[in-house]
Design a protein around this nucleic acid. Structure first.
Lengths: 208, 208
DNA sequence: CGCTAATCTAGAACAAGTTACAGACTTGAT
DNA sequence: ATCAAGTCTGTAACTTGTTCTAGATTAGCG
């Protein structure tokens, strides 16, 4: 983590003053709260602004679109989850099991706030090019969580491919669940299925 | 295919008259054409209506939302692709290769109309519960295409899981490509990686 | 302190998806 | 051919994301 930013996730263009940091926090909280109530549609920019006690124009200065706001909200939540997960690492014997366990744990957390999950995941997959940097940050965070669970310090390219595919499956499976087209059990099966790829790409014990 | 509908994809509630069928077709064509020009944002309901020569209200009677319209457009395009693919089946030796080849062929088709792909895929993943039946139809079509490529007449449950994961990867990889976060080469690798799951789930030659 | 640039506020205005509605046109049955 | 029911058209209104503007506040600096 560089010294430029305090939580390895914002470009730290101009360092924010204290009041600005506080505003940003209020906005993100308001966003998460509204999302938790009614999902994507309930996060209305005017309402977020009012709940956060800022003017609409200010909200847009901090987050240039609703999608940016929700992706930032997801970043925020993921950060929480990452630190939470680090405290109690998965117990499985082999990497595939541990990754599946970790993702299922994350999945259960999302089930507790399905509307919030809806808002964040929909924003993430709907994001266009203008949000790429932010979406990429989320993706890197997710990758980090999965690699942590694998216990892979120096992943091989083929392991990284597997992780990419796992992420794809994770996002898409979430979407099918959120839109009611797949059950929780289905998501579990899909996650376990894709995690089998990890065994397939594990460097053989004897290899350098 | 049942006798109730002519292309195994609409619930056929009231059978449409000829003029209605023609209207529907004009709308879908207008949608695809606008999408091909400028992607999701360029498909504006007023413009679709005008280009198709119908009133706005009529457009909404046929497709209750922009998302419904674009998902229907995708259904339409997929249908084309399915018949095209059937004509020249993939040549690979084992199922995994054939599926990867098929998906890459589909991917190349999408690359020819990236904006259209953008509109359709974004709509598909943004769709909420109200569009579930239509999204499900698209999903079934995709599944059919993949099973065709596998040559699996009676897929086992574990093969179906693999297919589900492949679909997840397919959609999500497309999104990362469309939003400029992954290169074409990356998508190819991801597809090939996930297709390895097929070997993993293939029923052993000797089994019943 | 007093100045200047940047930031924030309140509110209007605009864009595109969606809904509503009155009147004209089609369709199907008699 | 005629009538009733259902469709279609044209248009206005409403909603919510986004942009714009003029005036107040704040931050950094001499």
């Amino acid at each position: 983590m560089t010294a430029e930013n305090r939580a390895d996730h914002r470009p730290a263009s101009p360092p924010l003053t204290e009041r600005q940091e506080a505003r940003r926090r209020r906005i993100l909280n308001a966003s998460a709260q509204l999302a938790a109530r009614g999902g994507f549609d309930a996060v209305q920019m005017r309402e977020v602004a009012e709940a956060a006690g800022v003017a609409l124009g200010t909200l847009y200065r901090y987050f240039p679109s609703k999608i940016h706001l929700l992706v930032a909200t997801m970043q925020d939540q993921l950060q929480h989850m990452h630190t939470t997960l680090r405290k109690r690492p998965p117990a499985g014997a082999d990497p595939a099991e541990r990754v599946a366990e970790t993702l299922m744990r994350a999945f259960r957390a999302l089930q507790r706030e399905p509307q919030l999950a809806d808002a964040m995941v929909r924003a993430l997959t709907f994001a266009d090019r203008s949000v790429s940097p932010e979406v990429d940050t989320v993706s890197r965070l997710t990758t980090a969580i999965i690699l942590d669970a694998m216990g892979a310090e120096n992943p091989t390219p083929s392991q990284l491919s597997a992780v990419r595919v796992i992420e794809h499956t994770w996002h898409s499976a979430l979407i099918t669940w959120l839109s009611g087209r797949a059950s929780i059990a289905q998501v579990k099966i899909d996650i376990e299925t894709v995690c089998r790829l990890i065994d397939l790409t594990a460097p053989r014990p004897g290899a350098a």
